[in-house]
Design a protein around this nucleic acid. Structure first.
Lengths: 242, 242
DNA sequence: CGATTAATTGAACCTGGTCAATCGGAGTGG
DNA sequence: CCACTCCGATTGACCAGGTTCAATTAATCG
């Protein structure tokens, strides 16, 4: 029942780099199956050595970190095409947990093959490093948002980021994108309280910059929203996908 | 005048993994020279494709991101043994700038050799990925600190992190470590104002948890400080060094 | 229909920011 | 050697962005 990497729907979006026939063959060998999980299911636990690596095929999730006092930080949102479990594969254990926000289907890879990947497929190894560096890049931006932007700016920044990511993988239709998270998730991502996040979203709605209701995000003028966020727009590049 | 990788003083600290003779030989070829910069000098600019890659041999610096409104986020502190320029080498450009806080000497590598490194030295490629994943790991923690911890907790967290890093590379003597940054740097790292950072440091000093004066950090009881931060201590592992 | 979960709104409060002044050390020119 | 300046650290007073508490609404579900 597992899909064939060759026909992976994600490769048809122009968000990802193309792979040669040989490379696809290797990925097929690397892939050991598919995993489908319900919304709310933990996929990887923080601090553990995950037995598996995944690429998200469908659905959305969260990377989260729990603090001793019960506070939660959402480290990132997880979208189709994202690679999950890299830290664990390389360094031994995960710095954050990963959980499903919707039903998700994940492409499962064999972690023990990581080393043969480095030895015999340097292009794929390079892609892995690219993904790690890219995540580092993103987290630097997120840190800057949480540390230096006001609630309004940070919220606008997050919505722009999410919307842009959604666009690259074809999740935006007519300026609307499915965004099946709770306001609490965004609040935990930005280090804001739920109440204030709610009020900030209301402000963006009133200004007709962004409207997020019932799991759907509508943004009319992305540039205007980015201006509020005081962010420099960068055309999203093609990214590798494993 | 360039030091020989074989006798690199950093390899003598037990913070870094050992390299075989062959590996050291390759690193020597990879290395093209040494760079010495004064305190205050920018080493890499944000958003640029840096022509070079560096490993810090001596001195300390900062990774910073500038916001449109002039706000600055300190993304991380840079210590001897840290690798600088990885994002640029892999993804094309840097997400942050790097500048020297003290005089620094850097080991300079040839960026164009990166690809041969992936092809012919998979162990080194693996190490590069390790470094990227490690930085990602750290930034997740930093994000959590800035997002979820109070000023006192965040400050304590930062000092513990810095002190632990300092210990692994032998910079701590008698519970004291050189920390030649300004309070403004720490403030920008934690998303706090200078004034509040100052008062928070005073609080830690009053409680006799940490004392940072005149560029020297003294911590008597690291565990007590970590308790204030509500962080789980993890024994720092050996890390690769290029 | 009661129970649960998420969104929304108002009001009081507080952590941390802003403003402003002072202090001390290092460097510099006379 | 002294006056002057510059930079970073320090402290007090006031202010505000965002948190907390609490109550209400709305939708979903067994």
């Amino acid at each position: 029942m597992a899909e064939d990497c060759t026909n992976c729907w994600l490769r048809d979006t122009d968000a990802y780099e193309d792979l040669s026939r040989e490379e696809l063959r290797f990925m097929k060998r690397f892939k050991v199956g598919e995993l489908v999980v319900d919304a709310g299911t933990p996929i990887i636990l923080e601090g553990t050595r995950s037995p598996q690596l995944y690429t998200v095929l469908r659905g959305m999730g969260l990377r989260t970190k729990l603090l001793g006092n019960g506070n939660r930080q959402v480290v990132n949102f997880v979208f189709p095409g994202d690679f999950v479990g890299l830290q664990s594969a390389i360094m031994g254990d995960m710095g954050h947990a990963v959980e499903a926000s919707t039903e998700m289907t994940l492409c499962v890879f064999d972690r023990t093959q990581i080393w043969t990947l480095f030895k015999s497929h340097p292009e794929r190894a390079y892609d892995l490093t690219w993904l790690a560096a890219s995540e580092e890049h993103f987290l630097g931006e997120a840190l800057t948002s949480v540390g230096q932007r006001t609630a309004l700016q940070a919220t606008a920044w997050a919505l722009v980021k999410i919307f842009e990511r959604g666009k690259t993988i074809g999740m935006v239709k007519n300026g609307v994108m499915d965004l099946p998270y709770r306001q609490q998730d965004l609040a935990d991502a930005l280090g804001l309280s739920l109440v204030h996040t709610n009020k900030t979203l209301a402000r963006l709605r009133d200004r007709e910059l962004a409207e997020w209701r019932e799991g759907r995000l509508r943004i009319g003028n992305l540039d205007a929203l980015a201006d509020v966020a005081e962010m420099e727009r960068v055309e999203p590049k093609k990214r590798p996908m494993l």
